[in-house]
Amino acid sequence: MEDEEYAGGVQKKFIYINRRAPHGTVYAHEALETVLIGAAFDQDVSMLFIDDGVYQLKKEQRPDSLEMKNFSKAFKALEMYDVEKLFVETESLQERGLNESDLLVDVELVARAKVAELIDQQDVVLSF
């Protein structure tokens, strides 16, 4: 019913844009679910974290105190799913007093002025 391997042989460039903080709404968690399911389709996948979305990658989240699931651990496993292109907008980090060392995983920083160019290179844009 789901998760079937896609046999079409078409490879497109997918980018998942994460704009929201991890636990206030369900979007971040369900975006990650989409990325993990999508990995079975052998597409060229990137993720971009902008605005409050950068908080999704913050180290030392303890959402268990909110009875929320700590799905941030799954970001570390993305490499095993061949999802290796993680982009973070530099200004979004700076505006929130964060830097790369606050993040769970290695990322590629991209300047705000270059984000449109990155999106323009994609075939499918999914924004959560």
């Binding site: 999508g38 079975a40 389709f41």
Partner: peptide, 17 residues
């Protein structure tokens, strides 16, 4: 399942959110 979303993204000319 979500695979239907990914498949739609692959097969369609445009996926609109």
């Amino acid at each position: 399942g979500l695979g239907q979303l990914i498949e739609a993204g692959i097969e369609a000319d445009r996926l609109l959110t």
